[in-house]
């Protein structure tokens, strides 16, 4: 598996660390209902197909990346910088 880092280019998987689902980017407000916090912390989809998750480019530019990939075909469709995403 290779990821094309928007800054560093095409790099080997061993340079990256997996963090988890994109859900971690959508932190509920402090006073949000308990159900929202439960979902944020514990509930994850397990899709067969398109999924988006967070990777850290540990041995490269040290940026957090939002990776869109397909769990069935293993195709990587998009790699974005978390720091430059539109909220």
């Amino acid at each position: 598996m290779r990821l094309t880092c928007p800054l560093c280019g095409d790099r080997d998987r061993r340079e990256f660390t997996y963090y988890g689902a994109e859900d971690y980017l959508h932190r509920p407000a402090a006073e949000a209902p308990l159900a929202d916090w439960d979902g944020y912390l514990h509930l994850r989809d397990n899709p067969a197909g398109e999924t988006r998750d967070l990777w850290y480019h540990e041995a490269g530019c040290a940026q957090w990346l939002l990776v869109s990939r397909n769990t069935v075909t293993h195709a990587i469709s998009k790699v974005e910088l978390v720091a430059e995403r539109k909220a």
Binding site: C8, R11, R14, E15, A59, G60, C61, A62
Partner: peptide, 10 residues
């Protein structure tokens, strides 16, 4: 110029 791992070293 790149940042990359030299074996396991940044």
């Amino acid at each position: 110029a790149i940042r990359a791992g030299l074996n396991h070293m940044p």
